[in-house]
Amino acid sequence: MEEEWDEDGPEVVKRFMYVNRKAPYGTVYALEMLEKVLIAAAFEQDVHVVFMDDGVYQLKKEQETKGVNMKNFSPTFRALEGYDVEKLYVEKESLEARGLTVEDLVVPVEVLSSDDLKSLMSKQEVILTA
């Protein structure tokens, strides 16, 4: 990191949004996205994390991954709070289409309609999707 923060924190704080659209296993996108989220938090940016489409499955409770020989990384979402990443959003339509409710998820989230999510997205300065 070349920029130095003073004691008051970073000079520039931007609104970063991470949009998770992929199932947790099957491709590597979800796992490496989570690594990216943790780094933005270390830079003290205003981090927003969205789960939509099959991305909502990343938060599903009771993931059992031995059969697919992958590490279950869902417990890491519970650690996000410790990194001050507390703005987690799930798209309502994606959740409902998969027969899930907030009770099925490993962390507390704010459920937003597609329209509300659209408006939140339009306020972001950097959006990273996978």
């Binding site: 920029e3 931007k14 970063f16 996108y29 690594e35 780094i39 940016q45 950097v126 990273l128």
Partner: peptide
């Protein structure tokens, strides 16, 4: 490190992603 990506997002006027 990944910090270079975050720094890019902070410094650039537009951060553009290529990929799925």
């Amino acid at each position: 490190g990944l910090g270079q990506l975050i720094e890019s997002g902070i410094v650039a006027d537009r951060q553009i992603t290529f990929g799925d």
